[in-house]
């Protein structure tokens, strides 16, 4: 049985799609809801719990999507930037460790 993941849904508009195409990741988007595209960034249960603790406004939608929702845009933008820079979706370990090391300064840092 595949391991259960607890995704963060990054909703994809044209601008994001272009960046994903350039990173060779456009194929990882799923089409849901009448053609709307989403990129699901996986989290383990441990990462999910950490995210919910660090960003208290977020919630795990147990009823409908089974995903981590309501993260602020700047947080999701940063996760998206990491995905594009690393050309992979498995970026949450790096995201969490960088945020834990640098705190709020992380939001204004460029992804190297």
């Amino acid at each position: 049985m595949a391991e259960e993941t607890y995704p963060i849904n990054l909703w994809v508009n044209e601008e994001r799609l272009e960046k994903l195409q350039a990173a060779g990741l456009a194929g990882m988007c799923k089409e849901v809801l009448a053609g709307l595209k989403v990129l699901a960034v996986p989290n383990t249960a441990e990462q999910r719990d950490k995210i919910l603790k660090l960003f208290t406004m977020a919630k795990f939608d147990t009823a409908t999507t089974k995903s981590i929702e309501l993260l602020p845009k700047f947080v999701k933008d940063k996760i998206f930037d990491l995905v594009v820079a690393r050309k992979k979706i498995d970026v949450m370990d790096e995201f969490l460790s960088k945020f834990e090391q640098t705190g709020d300064a992380f939001w204004s840092q460029q992804i190297a």
Binding site: N9, W11, N13, L36, D61, K73
Partner: peptide
Amino acid sequence: TMIRSIIQDGVKPP
């Protein structure tokens, strides 16, 4: 919640 998430991302839903 899902729609809020889409709007927060600055994406216009269909």
